[in-house]
Simulated assay, not measured.
Amino acid sequence: MLSRGATRLPSLCSLGKCFLSTATAAPPVDLEYDVYCYNTHSLEADPKAEKGPLIICHGLFGSKRNWQSLGKVLAKELKRSVIPLDLRNFGESPQSEQMDYATMASDVIHFCDKHSLKNISLLGHSMGGKVAMTVALKPDLPKGLLSNLIVADISPIRANLSSEFPRYVDGMIKIERNGSIKSKKEAFDKLYEYEKNSLIRHFLLTNLDPTHEGEPIKFRVPLQTVKTALPDIGWFPYEPGEASWGGPTLFVKGSKSNYIKLKHLDVMKSFFPIMEMETLEAGHWIHYERSKEFVAVIKQFLGEH
């Protein structure tokens, strides 16, 4: 189902070492998506568009829904199609027990192949940033598919996830299993035990299953699958020297966030030798906290390349 203002791809502007998991790669799934297209009058499909689309990969517990407003702004400012995706197990996309970066990257490549997309720019935030980087570094990346890479506040580092994410999953699982919590307000109040920040609690509750309204709370995200996958989500499929991508790459760092550290720069450059980095006065949710500046940085980067 599309968000208001979105268009299905058939009407889209003419577009021309290993994980902790030892499982073999799962077959790709068909990802759900929205499309925001630009023309001089509206965000409708523009058959004369020549620029490749900007595809967006959300972070952990995010979805394409989180990029509705910014997707429209980006389409207007960049004068190109903007396509936020729901990654597997999130939003309206299919669910699967396998959830590692190689598999999620294959989903994105499959999406592009299915819809005959080329010359794309790929933007990913947090977990989605690692998905985007994995797409760029995959040895089977189709020639001519990727032209620009934008990574929002994450680095290609192998590390454990910070402790709040396991805490969030545990809290959501307990709320779902409670059986007596039937409203978003009750779930919001209960989540206070696991996260004091009200904005983050509201964000986590965007994952509620709307079909269970008035019934015991249920999340549309397979929480146990996500909990099992957390070690892989903190990891990265490549070590420095194993792979590189020579296209234009932009890292956007939040100055108040520790997800990109200066000591990571050599590793980042080993994977992406033609990289640059911009820092915005923000935390990890950089595109939300500094949306205007975030759009301006992307617009300048894509304009230069």
Rank of each mutant, 00 (worst) to 15 (best):
Asp170Tyr: 09
Val131Pro: 03
Tyr194Asp: 07
Thr206Arg: 06
Ala159Trp: 01
Cys112Trp: 00
Gly144Val: 12
Phe111Trp: 10
Ile150Tyr: 02
Lys114Ala: 09
Ile181Trp: 02
Lys174Glu: 15
Arg88Asn: 11
Gly129Met: 12
His202Ala: 12
Glu164Asn: 14
Phe165Cys: 00
Ser116Asn: 15
Arg158Leu: 03
Glu92Asn: 13
Arg167Tyr: 11
Asp107Lys: 14
Leu117Ser: 04
Leu117His: 02
Ser96His: 12
Arg177Cys: 02
Phe188Glu: 11
Thr225Ala: 03
Lys138Gln: 13
Ala132Gly: 09
Met127Cys: 14
Lys138Asp: 10
Tyr192Lys: 15
Arg88Asp: 08
Ala102Asp: 14
Ser106Met: 12
Lys185Tyr: 09
Gly124Tyr: 05
Pro156Arg: 03
Asp100Gln: 09
Leu205Arg: 04
Gln98Pro: 05
Pro222Thr: 12
Glu213Thr: 15
Ile120Gly: 04
Tyr194Lys: 07
Val108Pro: 11
Asn89Pro: 05
Phe203Glu: 03
Met127Ser: 14
Ile175Gly: 13
Leu146Met: 14
Lys182Phe: 00
Ser106Thr: 09
Asp140Gly: 06
Asn119Ala: 07
Ala152Pro: 08
Leu146Thr: 14
Leu145Cys: 09
Leu137Val: 08
Val135Leu: 06
Lys114Cys: 02
Ser163Glu: 11
Ala159Leu: 05
Ala105Leu: 15
Leu223Val: 09
Arg177Phe: 00
Leu146Cys: 13
Phe111Ile: 15
Asp232Val: 08
Val131Tyr: 00
Ala229Thr: 03
Glu195Leu: 12
His115Arg: 03
Lys185Gly: 08
Asp209Ser: 00
Ile200Trp: 03
Ser96Lys: 04
Leu117Asp: 02
Pro156Lys: 11
Pro222Lys: 06
Ser163Lys: 13
Gly144Ala: 04
Pro139Gly: 12
Leu141Trp: 15
Met127Lys: 09
Ser96Leu: 11
Asp209Cys: 00
Ser155Pro: 05
Asn197Met: 07
His115Leu: 11
Arg220Ala: 00
Pro139Leu: 04
Lys184Ser: 11
Gln95His: 15
Ala105Thr: 14
Gly129Gln: 03
Glu213Ser: 12
Lys138His: 11
Leu199Ser: 11
Lys118Trp: 04
Leu208Glu: 01
Glu195Ile: 05
Arg88Met: 06
Glu92Ile: 02
Gln95Val: 14
Lys118Phe: 02
Glu213Leu: 07
Ile181Cys: 02
His212Leu: 00
Leu87Tyr: 00
Thr206Ala: 06
Glu186Arg: 15
Glu164Ala: 14
Ala229Met: 07
Met172Phe: 06
Ser183Ile: 08
Lys143Asp: 15
Lys196Ala: 14
His110Lys: 08
Lys185Phe: 13
Leu205Trp: 01
Glu215Tyr: 01
Ile217Ser: 01
Leu146Pro: 07
Asn119Leu: 06
Ile150Val: 13
His125Asn: 06
Pro94His: 05
Ser96Met: 10
Leu223Ala: 03
Gly144Trp: 08
Arg201Ala: 07
Lys184Asp: 02
Ile157Gln: 13
Thr103Arg: 08
Glu195Ser: 13
Met99Val: 12
Phe219Trp: 01
Ile233Gly: 04
Ala229Pro: 05
Ile157Glu: 12
Ser106Phe: 04
Phe188Asp: 14
Tyr192Trp: 04
Thr134His: 01
Asn178Arg: 00
Val151Lys: 01
Thr134Asn: 01
Ser106Tyr: 00
Leu146Val: 14
Leu123Lys: 05
Phe188Asn: 12
Val135Tyr: 02
Arg167Leu: 15
Ala102Ser: 13
Ile150Ala: 01
